[in-house]
Amino acid sequence: MSITQILFWFLTVMAIGSALMVITSRNPVYSVLFLIATFFAISGHYILLNAQFLAIVNLIVYAGAIMVLFLFVIMLMNLNTETEPQKNKWLKFAGTIAGGCLLLVMVAALRDADTKTTTALMKEGDIGLVQNLGKTLFKEYVVPFEISSVLFLSAMVGAVVLGKKD
């Protein structure tokens, strides 16, 4: 076990554990906090993969902005009291089974023999650095980048349409 592996497994356990807590916590605020923890773990994974830019952007965008909005909404809606009514137990059971099946099927399908030896580069390879990503983004991916502005515009208009009081 190298230090990389230790970190990998630590982050993995943290990510999956927190993710499980997200869906099992009864209090939505706890769910949000555990989701943030998951994001932290995933950011850790990114750093292990030397994708520093994404790691930080993940923190800023997801943990720093998106989850704050979630917290906002949850707190303003005062959902801290346990207001989520019990879903039909069997439905829950079925949902869990379905998800588990998905997991099993996908794992079975993707456990390809010829990829056993394939590895992802850790801690090296500088494509994940800001400079390189930025160059690719603004050279190769300039069109989608500009187009995504349309997406934002529409989301902005949407927030106005839905949020503004008549």
């Binding site: 930080i56 800023i60 943990a63 650095l129 800001v130």
Partner: peptide, 9 residues
């Protein structure tokens, strides 16, 4: 090399 971004994060 992402110092400022780190700060923001």
């Amino acid at each position: 090399n992402i110092g400022i971004l780190y700060v923001f994060g």
